[in-house]
Design a protein around this nucleic acid. Structure first.
Lengths: 255, 255
DNA sequence: CGTACAGTTGAGGAGATTCAATCATCGTGG
DNA sequence: CCACGATGATTGAATCTCCTCAACTGTACG
């Protein structure tokens, strides 16, 4: 993890410029002069325990949230209470962008583990963005990437087999861990199999079967939620004939 | 390149305020005082013949486009030249939003029939949006809706059966035709079965079979590309247990 | 009028789901 | 500290949906 930043309460109050994720998060395109203004509108460091919600579907929309540590899943509930996972979000990624057009949140967001988030009130952000063109531009980009990512997911689900979907998710996670200077080949899945299956449109059993199949082929080792990828290229090979799946290296949003 | 010929009643040179789609398109939230400024940056009325492209994947990104008449499909090509349809766009809807974050278009857009589009140069739009908060707000909303729509499509493809997917597409088209004050129960599909199948992740044969199955159940009548919906509620019923699929009534983007 | 192309229909097969049982893991309370 | 229950994960067998391959029909257009 981070060497300098402990998970104590002191780090929660730190500004965006001290945040190790500032390269990934909102302020990336904002000059350090302007970060001060940004910090004024962002509420730092709210802690969510496992299962706690950042926001709830149908609640009045006010803010997006940046994930500082931990992991978030977003999901919708049908009228019968059936859950549909719409994305997983890791540190440096922003949740709630899909609700910007709405009066109410279009999905719920809950913590997959102990998670720290920063609140970004959208109304204030919009007025600030009017004054800071680079911020406006960056926010447009963030949303556009979200569209991109969602499109790629759509393509993944519309055409690809179970093995390709899982491979794509593993690669996406690998890329996103790497971006945070963590190991891209050895990491712990923040989510249970059921959420993976739900997200990828597969039965839990299928997820499990594919994992063991990959393991038998020597591509990975899976033990519970701990994953070791032995052959990154073999996973990439499975998606070669596709138009790039889930997250590209430079993308900084969900999955 | 640009062929700008007036077509009788609805001149291509007409401004956004004369355009019958202004309620759907970009200017919806802009005061009539400001529409003038908007018109200055928008290039009106480029005509595309069937098969012609509005923009091509990997070309330098410059503009989004609003569909004025006709129909557009967006698609990506894999390295092997395999096509993946990512959306269908009808008059009043905006294409290219997913490329705003990129230097190059992330997909191609081609006309499914003779189509008229208005070009929206993004750089100019961004600087104008800085001066017009309502425009900025509206553009944020447009993009957010695009995310929304893409998410809903993802859910559709991840969980639903062939019948549910087709039903969802039919309802989406119905809703979008209605919004333009056209019949929501009797319309002509702008796209061939192959594009429908490609878009929904189904084989052409499956699309065909589902259409005839619906027809045998008395829900619709299909003759080539002409569709008549006899029982709108029956279609809705198929999706009732889902979290609202494809396009919601107030959404104004793709599908 | 014949050639493409779009659309329909049928038979067979592959992949994923469902149902069911078993095993593993973890937090909790006795 | 261990036992227990609960939840998560794995594995097997049967079923089903949709895809593939193939043949055929309809339609538009030269």
């Amino acid at each position: 993890m981070d060497k300098r930043i402990p998970t104590g309460s002191a780090s929660l109050q730190q500004g965006c410029n001290q945040c190790s994720l500032s390269k990934l998060c909102i302020p990336i395109a904002v000059s350090s002069d302007d970060i001060g203004k940004l910090e004024e509108i962002i509420k730092q460091g709210r802690i969510l325990d496992r299962g706690e919600q950042a926001f709830e579907q149908h609640a009045p929309f006010t803010s997006c949230f940046a994930v500082r540590s931990g992991a978030i899943k977003t999901y919708t509930l049908s009228e019968e209470g059936e859950e549909q996972v719409t994305g997983f979000y890791l540190p440096g990624e922003v949740i709630g962008l899909d609700s910007v057009s709405m009066d109410y949140y279009s999905c719920s967001a809950s913590a997959l583990e102990r998670t720290i988030i920063c609140e970004i009130p959208l109304e204030k952000l919009e007025s600030l963005a009017s004054k800071l063109p680079t911020l406006q531009h960056h926010f447009f980009q963030l949303m556009s990437k979200e569209i991109q990512g969602s499109r790629q997911l759509t393509m993944l689900l519309s055409k690809n087999t179970a093995e390709e979907r899982i491979a794509s998710l593993l690669l996406s996670l690998s890329t996103r861990f790497s971006r945070r200077r963590l190991s891209g080949t050895e990491f712990r899945l923040p989510m249970p199999r059921s959420d993976i299956g739900n997200f990828l449109g597969l039965a839990v059993e299928t997820v499990s079967r594919v994992f063991t199949r990959f393991q038998n082929q020597g591509m990975i080792t899976v033990k519970g939620r701990d994953v070791t990828i032995h052959n990154l290229d073999a996973l990439r090979e499975m998606l070669k004939h596709e138009t790039q799946c889930l997250k590209s290296p430079e993308s900084a949003t969900s999955a």
